[in-house]
Nucleic acid binder design. Structure first.
Length: 162
DNA sequence: GTAATGATTGTTAAG
DNA sequence: CTTAACAATCATTAC
């Protein structure tokens, strides 16, 4: 409404770095993942179309700019070009990103599964050696991998141009 | 020597 | 609806 996007677009950047960990204890973290939660299977966020494009762009950019050193240079250049690209050009990238999202959802499903040991009220590893059998495979079957790759992708919605 | 930072946009999850 | 933060990358810097 009143906000629309202007307020958000004002300065979206600048806070990602606000996640500084006061604890200087040896912590292997990139920046925000410092917390190292106890989630063993936490799925990482799939790369957006922009990142997919960036992956390729990086090679191109570095190929023509071997002198470039800062990652920010590629990011800026990539972002500039990204906006310069037409939706049709980003289409293939978005398509790939869409697939990543689908996989992400799947991973989330597993992550959501949360192994609440149905057997043990309090201790879970107490008598693990007692009756630890493979009681897996209940569902998770019939998972057909849909690797459909539209060969005939006719992008006709290309702008008529002027 | 290790770890964080910088910069881009998008996407998702939570509030 | 809105905010916040993270996704890759890599040289450089800081302690």
């Amino acid at each position: 409404m009143k906000n629309g996007k202007g307020a958000v677009d004002d300065r979206v950047v600048g806070k990602r770095k606000a996640a500084l960990k006061p604890d200087s204890s040896s912590a292997k973290l990139s920046k925000k993942a410092r917390n190292a939660k106890k989630d063993p299977n936490k799925p990482k966020r799939p790369p957006s179309a922009f990142f997919v494009f960036l992956e390729e762009f990086r090679k191109t950019f570095k190929a023509e700019n071997p002198n470039v050193k800062a990652v920010s240079a590629v990011g800026k250049a990539g972002g500039a070009k990204w906006k310069s690209m037409t939706p049709a050009e980003k289409a293939p990238y978005e398509d790939k990103a869409a697939k990543k999202k689908a996989e992400y959802e799947k991973l989330m499903n597993a992550y959501n599964k949360k192994p609440t040991n149905p057997v043990n009220d309090k201790d879970e590893e107490s008598d693990k050696s007692k009756s630890e059998v493979h009681d897996e495979e209940d569902e998770a079957s019939g998972e057909e991998a849909h690797q459909e790759e539209e060969d005939d992708e006719d992008e006709d919605d290309e702008e008529d141009d002027d």
